[in-house]
Design a protein around this nucleic acid. Structure first.
Length: 629
RNA sequence: GGGGCGGUAGCUCAAUUGGUUAGAGUACUGGACUGUCGAUCCAGUGGUUGCGGGUUCGAGUCCCGUCCGCCUCGCCA
């Protein structure tokens, strides 16, 4: 028996025969080799030392026994510390000291016969243990700087594995359905719509810039014109906007496009994908997904991605409110009553019934709701309770007495309920109550756990979005999805015929777009694209683009669409959010191997960083930035 | 760009009203220890209190500025 400690000199590289997660009683008696990191050491001097060895597959206990091993080996073993990199050869046996039920490999141990210290670690900034120090992980800035250490944590390894499975499941599904995976450029043309873009200066074309793609939208449409029939790509997208807990400037989409389809075909395909993905990753069978028109979502839930796992639905009580003497109801209901229902210029009164709210909602909470809805532009939130005797109490109670029976019927009121009212123009009242509904649900604790924590997976497809909405700042029309989204088939004629100044009609035009919503979170969105030139011109006209401007910005697409473009439609899934759902985290940085901070910095590599004068000169750029101090 | 929370030993945290030499656990180092499994026991090293300025006899603590991290509004499909 030869024992080797190669702290210096040539490595033997005792290459592994098994991973640290796979040895069981059935392996007893075999000679095996493991490679990995020291996860924990339990030394009893040079007589006996236990090492928990870790790789991404698990933990295995290895034993250094002074009765078998040379003293110099035992000396080294006694000084092994967390995260040293080692290789061992030894015999699998039933644990002499009894099993450890916490480990998958807890019934066996390896008695070391050969040992190699592959790399001694320097003292670590933190130990990559899911428990962390004092029950807490190190702060995010430390973990970000040493991301390669944090990624060794079992939880992070598991997440990387889930993400990998999502990639594989995705590619299998779309391959089986006849999709071609095609890469599109990262260095791309700047296009004006949507988010702020990252710019890359050109060296060969002085004064010109590439942009990084917000999405491969135009390329995938052109691939349809190019006869590719069905395209998919797992692609990186870039949007230079401030991040959030669930949003990074650099993120990943599952992007697809299909030719010769209507929206139903795409929705069927994406529903099939969702079903396959959930089956592959979680084993869950996704039931048929309900479709809900945008208008219904807004009416009932006040948001275009409703969380339908709980009630607290919104009710329009404008007609009843009109019969009361509440001044702020009357003021609002004087506005835009000649306009059609749902028009943004029409005043409405809406309410949420909170069952048992009289008890659950404190005065402090309801006072807060008043402030809360003001944040969305509403004047305030009126509150009334139904007392045990079934009478209105507090707030605007006395004004509601005359319509008591109607209100009870409309809202289904019961003793002990609280009613929250907002009166304002349609969009403001709707949004305020939509947001308030979610806040109340959190406050009274009725939001279920997500699917990854044993709660429901609640899918919904939202359809029939408006084509256009008014930009709050400029007052101009903007495309709700993007300017290549087609109107729904039955709306195309009305749209082309509409007067561009007829706001009421324009606002009523419905698109052939669709979103997939999971537990109140948008996980995918797409649309049928315009392949009719008259429709496309009309869109540009509405958006305030002259034919010349449209040509300058999108000539390549418009030309392509004029040379035999098939009807086509597509969708994109936010891959990071899918993975977040599967692993049960609300932090997008958890599911990205090398994420960025709130200021878009990579703490590990220190990107972004200064460029040299020569580099800037090469690309014809001069910085105007003046450092302070 | 706005609002909020945070930054003290390698890590996680504490430090009374502004008052003695800034502490604890853990990690690390040394020692003891032949069946541990969050090993245990003994001893020790370890501090620009993010950075800069100010008030004060005296600042981790108060004030101003600034940097960084997180959450959030704006923004973003």
């Amino acid at each position: 028996m030869r024992l080797v400690v190669t702290t210096e000199g040539p490595h033997l590289m005792l290459r592994r025969t098994h991973t640290c997660g796979e040895l069981r009683e059935s392996h007893v008696g075999q000679t095996v080799r493991l490679n990995g990191w020291v996860n924990a050491y339990r030394g009893h001097g040079t007589g006996l030392t236990f090492i928990d060895m870790r790789d991404r597959f698990g933990l295995t206990q290895v034993v250094f026994d002074g009765a078998d091993l040379a003293k110099e080996i035992m000396e080294v073993a006694d000084h092994l510390r967390s995260e040293d990199v080692i290789a061992v050869q030894g015999t699998v046996r039933i644990r002499v000291g009894g099993p450890n039920p916490k480990l998958d490999t807890g019934k066996i141990e390896i008695v070391v016969t050969k040992f190699e210290l592959l790399n001694k670690t320097d003292p670590l900034p933190f130990i990559p243990d899911d428990t962390g120090t004092g029950g807490k992980l190190a702060n995010e800035d430390i973990r970000g700087k040493y991301r390669y250490i944090d990624l060794r944590r079992p939880t992070m390894q598991k997440i990387l594995g889930i993400r990998h499975k999502v990639y594989q499941s995705t590619r299998r599904y779309f391959d089986e359905n006849g999709f071609l995976e095609i890469e599109t450029p990262i260095l791309y043309k700047s296009t004006p719509e949507g988010a702020r873009e990252f710019l890359v200066p050109s060296r060969n074309v002085p004064g010109s810039w590439y942009a990084l793609p917000q999405s491969p939208q135009l390329f995938k449409q052109i691939l349809m014109v190019a006869g590719c029939d069905r395209y998919m790509q797992i692609c990186r997208c870039f949007r230079d906007e401030d991040p959030r807990a669930d949003r990074q400037a650099e993120f990943t989409q599952i992007d697809l496009e299909m030719a010769f389809v209507r929206r139903e075909h795409v929705m069927d395909m994406m529903e099939g994908f969702v079903r396959r993905l959930w089956k592959d990753i979680t084993g869950y069978d996704v039931p048929p997904i309900q479709k809900m028109p945008y208008r219904e979502a807004m009416e009932r839930f006040g948001i275009d991605r409703p969380d339908t796992r709980y009630g607290l639905e919104i009710t329009d009580i404008s007609e009843i409110a009109a019969k009361t003497d509440v001044a702020f109801f009357k003021d609002v209901l004087a506005k835009g009553q000649d306009r059609p229902k749902f028009n943004s210029g029409r005043g409405v009164v809406k309410a949420i019934r909170v069952p048992g709210g009289a008890e659950k909602l404190t005065r402090k909470l309801t006072d807060g709701y008043n402030e809360f809805v003001r944040g969305f532009g509403a004047g305030g939130c009126a509150v009334t309770k139904v007392n045990a005797a079934g009478a209105f109490e507090t707030g605007i109670a006395k004004f509601l007495e005359p319509v008591k029976a109607e209100l009870f019927a409309a809202l289904g009121l019961q003793p002990g309920d609280t009613i929250l009212f907002v009166s304002d123009l349609y969009p403001i009242a709707t949004k305020s109550l939509g947001e308030l509904r979610q806040k109340v649900a959190r406050d009274i604790g009725i939001v279920p756990k997500p699917g990854s924590e044993g709660g429901p997976w609640n899918f919904l497809i939202v359809v029939d979005f408006p084509m256009f909405e008014k930009d709050k700042e400029s007052g101009r029309w903007i495309a709700m999805h993007h300017p290549f989204t087609a109107p729904r088939d039955d709306q195309a004629k009305a749209f082309v015929d509409a007067d561009v100044n007829d706001d009421v009609t324009i606002e009523s035009i419905v698109s052939a777009g669709y979103d997939i919503v999971l537990n109140g979170q948008e996980i995918a969105g797409g649309s049928v694209r315009i392949h009719d030139r008259a429709v496309q011109s009309k869109v540009f006209q509405l958006l305030g683009l002259t034919p010349e401007q449209a040509k300058e910005k999108f000539s390549f697409l418009l030309e392509a669409l004029s040379y035999g473009a098939p009807p086509h439609a597509g969708i994109a899934f936010g891959l990071d959010r899918l993975v977040m759902n599967f692993v049960g985290t609300s932090n997008i940085r958890d599911v990205i191997a090398f994420p960025k901070t709130q200021t878009g910095q990579d703490l590990m590599t220190s990107a972004p960083s200064k460029a040299t004068e020569d580099q800037l000169k090469d690309v014809h750029v001069k910085s105007t930035f003046v450092p302070q101090n």
